[in-house]
Amino acid sequence: MTASNTASDVLLQTPLHALHKELGARMVPFAGYDMPVQYPAGLMAEHLHTRTQAGLFDVSHMGQLRLVGPDAAAALETLLPVDVLGLGLNKQRYGLLLNDEGGILDDLMFVNRGNDLFLIVNGACKVTDIAWIQEHIGSRCEVIPMPEQALLALQGPAAVNALQAIVPGVENLVFMTGGSFTWEGHMLYVTRSGYTGEDGFEISLPGSAAESFARTLLAQNGVMPIGLGARNSLRLEAGLCLYGNDIDITTTPAQGALNWAIQKVRRTGGERAGGFPGAAKVLAEIDHPYSLPSKRITLLGQERVPVREHTELHNEAGEKVGEVTSGLLSPCLNQPIAIAYVTLSSATLDTTLFALVRGKKIPMKVVPSPFLPTRYYRG
């Protein structure tokens, strides 16, 4: 969205917009929506609260859609380099929507709900994603957008107690599974997942019920509203990519260090290997990783100087070897953390690189991802 059309009267609003304003949120344009970046408590307090208790996020700007029909799973497999056909009932999986060059059009989550495949795509990409999916597999299954649905995320160690108090049974879900529930007569679909590294849930529900449901959750012990600012810092501590920053149409899965998301059945041998857009390039890069021009890494700063996106990275010889794509001062570690792309010779663990911040060389070390241990509930 350009500067000329970011006035609030041209931005879309989620069903929780009035509640955000009532709670004192500072609103900003994001993915075409007027969204809360933080509440009066501030980013740091919201971040730490989510790590210790429970944070409620409005993610209704995300795209939700259903694929319906007996051929839906086989059709979706032609667009994603992941195992769709083998996904069990009410199981969730991370996927990558690729173009013919193997570039990442979007990353998404999908669930096999038995009667349909339920997809959640990024808000800034949802219009083009839905059009791409419709164009390529719309003749094989129904592609049904769900603009009437809201999407909330409840994240943190107290999330399960807060949610099961009003939606009994959700405590039986484990990480990357989902189920159908009801709340005051409204149908919910709940997955035990999220984008913070914490245990938590994402709840798809009718937009008409979203505000009353959110108010009920916020009345539970330990729950507070969280804005986009803390959502970003939480996902970065968890080592998770932000589409548009850390991966985009110029990134292939191997360059993005996302090989783990491509199951073996789609990689080697068998009739289901390949068969997705850009497969020849994607699989060649997986098989020959030393051919990559650059690779995504995670960096921990050795001095307390925040390192932001687009900051250049140099090696000890002073040569530019890459660039930061996401970076900030970690609220939990109190050290700078970053995601970056660098040449392969600079991507080895424990390598020291130097970020150029206002003419000063800030040392950063290549470290494993995530920065903090994840706390997903696996049963």
Rank of each mutant, 00 (worst) to 15 (best):
A355V: 09
H314G: 02
E312F: 04
A340T: 10
G359F: 09
L344I: 06
V307R: 07
P331M: 01
S346G: 02
I337V: 00
T311N: 08
V307L: 05
E319K: 03
S326Q: 07
E309Q: 05
A340I: 08
T348C: 07
T352F: 15
T311K: 13
E312C: 15
L328R: 06
Y341G: 12
R308W: 11
S330W: 05
A355R: 04
R358H: 04
K360N: 10
Q302T: 07
H310A: 13
V357I: 07
T351Q: 08
L356N: 14
I337C: 06
V357F: 01
P331A: 05
L356F: 12
N315E: 09
D350Q: 10
E309D: 11
H314F: 09
S346E: 13
P331I: 06
L349I: 00
R358T: 14
A347R: 01
K360Q: 15
G318F: 00
G359N: 14
P336H: 14
E303D: 01
S346K: 12
A355W: 10
T325W: 03
V307S: 09
T343G: 11
Y341H: 08
G322W: 05
I337D: 13
Y341E: 01
K320E: 14
V305W: 12
S345G: 07
V357E: 06
T311G: 05
F354V: 11
L353C: 04
L353E: 02
T352Y: 09
G318T: 01
V324C: 06
K320Y: 11
I339E: 12
S330M: 03
S345I: 11
L333G: 13
Q302C: 13
A317Q: 11
L349C: 00
L353Y: 11
E309A: 08
T352H: 14
I337T: 09
R304S: 14
V307M: 09
L329M: 03
E303P: 10
T325C: 02
L333C: 10
L349H: 08
N315G: 13
L344E: 10
L328S: 01
T352M: 15
E312A: 08
T325E: 04
S326I: 06
F354T: 08
A355L: 04
I339W: 11
A338S: 05
L313F: 08
S326E: 10
G359M: 01
E309P: 03
E323M: 12
T325Y: 12
S346T: 02
K320N: 05
Q302A: 10
V342T: 08
T351G: 05
E323C: 04
Q302F: 12
I337F: 01
S346P: 02
C332I: 11
T343F: 06
R304A: 15
E316V: 15
P336I: 05
P336E: 10
C332N: 14
A338I: 13
K361M: 12
L344S: 04
H310G: 07
L329N: 02
R308G: 10
L353G: 04
A338K: 05
K320I: 12
N315Y: 02
G359L: 09
K320W: 11
I337E: 09
R308D: 08
T348Q: 02
P336M: 00
V357H: 04
